[in-house]
Amino acid sequence: MSSYFPIPPTINLEELSLKIAGSTTFLNIPNNRLKNRIFSKGYNQVIYLGLYSLEKYNWSLIKVFKTSPYEFAQVERKDFECESNQMLVLVPQKTNNFPKSPKKLPKPDSLRIDKSPVAERCSLNFSFKNSVTSYQGEYPFEMALLKNSSFFSFDALKQSSFKDEVLNFVIYMNININSDVRDEANINVFNPSDIFLKRKFVAKRNSFTIHRIQEENNGSQINSVYFYTSEDCSFIPITLTLNLKTNQLSAEHTHPPSEFFYGLNKIDGGRLLKKTWL
C-alpha cells in the first residue's frame, strides 16, 4: 500500500509567543525487504519526492527532492511560506514527472521491492527548543480516496495537567487527493459516561485541525477520557503533549477501532464500535 508523507503543522503557543515546529524525515530504502540472495542486485532505486501545498484552487508543486539509495531528505515546514495548518504533503515517485498544478494529487509510488509486510512510512517530527518527538507515520493512499467515512477516537493519551504546566493537543489530519475537497466536518466531543452532553467543534478536510484540550480538562473531570466522533469524515488523530517546565514533548497516534480486534473480520469489529458510539 503506497502512502503520502505529510509535513506536520506548526503549533502556535500564542500566550508564550513560541511555536512547536513540524518536520518530516524521509529515507530512500524500502523499510522492510527480504535479505538479498547471493549474486542478486543491491537496492539502487532513485526516489523523487514532490512537495505539494494545497492552494486556493489546486495542489501546487513547490519543490522536488531527489534521493539516492540510503539518502535522507529532511523537510521542515518553516522553510516554506505557508499557513501553520495548511496541508503540505510529500509524494514519492520513481520518476521526476510531477504535474505543476494538478486538481488531484498524483498517486504515490510504492517503495516495496518484494512481498514483505510493510507500511510505507517516514518520521513525522515535532520540535520545541531542544526537544524533539517523532513517530513513524504516513497517510495511506486508499484513505486519501475516501468520499464517505466516519471517525471514532479518544484522548486517553493526554497527560494530567497541573497549573497549566502541560499543554495537550489532538491534531486531526485529513488528506483527500481532490483539491476541491476542503469543506468542514463536525467532530463530537463527549464524556462516554454522559453521551447526551455532546459538544461539537469543526475540523477541515485536507488540513490539519489543531484541537487544544483544556475545556474538557477541568475540575473533577481532570483525568476523564473523552471520546471524539465524526459521522462525516475520517482523520488520523495525533496526541501531542508539551511540558512547559521540562520542555518534554510527546507525540503518538491512537489506533483505529479495528485494531482492538485480531482476525480476518477485524474491520467488522471496528464497525461495531463505531455503531455503538457514532
Binding site: T25, F26, L27, I29, P30, N31, N32, R33, L34, K35, F72, Q74, S116, R121, C122, S123, S134, Q136
Partner: peptide, 10 residues
C-alpha cells in the same frame, strides 16, 4: 528466509 527492516529515522 531473513528480512531486513529499516526504520525511516535519522
Amino acid at each position: 528466509r531473513k528480512h531486513i527492516y529499516t526504520p525511516i529515522y535519522k
